Amino acid sequence: MDAEKIPLTEADTASYDSTAQMLKAAMAYVNPSLGKMMAVMAKSIELQHMMQYLNQGGIRACGVSNRSIPPEEVLRDLRKYCGSKEKEQLDRCLNLMNMAKMYEMYRNFSGSGDLSAMASMMSSAAGTGSGEAAGTSGSAGDNEYFRKMQSMLTPEQIQLIRNIGNQQNT
């Protein structure tokens, strides 16, 4: 378990019971068979509280009713309850989602799914085109657009796009 303090969820707060906490703390001081019984009692108390909470309306994420919640919003909210390893995994997922969105924006923008054009435009926007002068792959507006897209990516993601673009050219 990480040393950092992870906050309680709304559900944890609703199911909290001081008696259950005392039972769990006391488990370390009794024989194992009595400790098991105390653990079951503590969890059943918490379960009762959770059922009462859910019967009274339960949890609503950010007060939403029937609106569609973007997956990125869910992942960003879940980050609060993660340790450092889990946060890294969620961050990777969020980066991949951002990359997919940017690719979709590119496809809509250019009317093409050709990643080699995207890689070329990103290279020229960054001034690192392979043998090309900056700006020859598109207009100044295109370059500005791809500079903004590039600023949202990690260097590894930029290299991945360039590699895919190079593979499509061969």
Rank of each mutant, 00 (worst) to 15 (best):
M1T: 11
M1P: 03
K5W: 05
T9M: 05
D12V: 00
S15V: 00
S15Y: 02
Y16C: 00
D17C: 04
S18I: 03
S18L: 06
T19L: 04
A20S: 13
A26R: 14
P32L: 03
L34H: 11
K36F: 09
A39S: 08
M50I: 11
M50Q: 15
M51D: 14
M51N: 12
Q52F: 01
G58Y: 10
G58C: 00
I59R: 15
I59P: 03
R60K: 15
A61V: 10
N66D: 10
N66F: 06
R67C: 01
S68R: 11
I69C: 03
P70N: 13
V74I: 14
L78V: 13
Y81C: 04
K85T: 09
E88N: 08
M99A: 12
A100E: 14
K101F: 01
M105N: 15
N108Q: 15
F109E: 08
G111S: 11
G113I: 07
D114G: 02
D114W: 05
L115F: 09
S120R: 14
G129S: 09
G131A: 12
A134N: 03
T136H: 01
A140C: 01
G141N: 10
D142K: 14
Q150M: 09
S151Y: 02
L153R: 04
Q157W: 01
R162P: 00
R162I: 12
N163D: 15
Q167Y: 09
Q168C: 06
Q168E: 15
N169F: 03
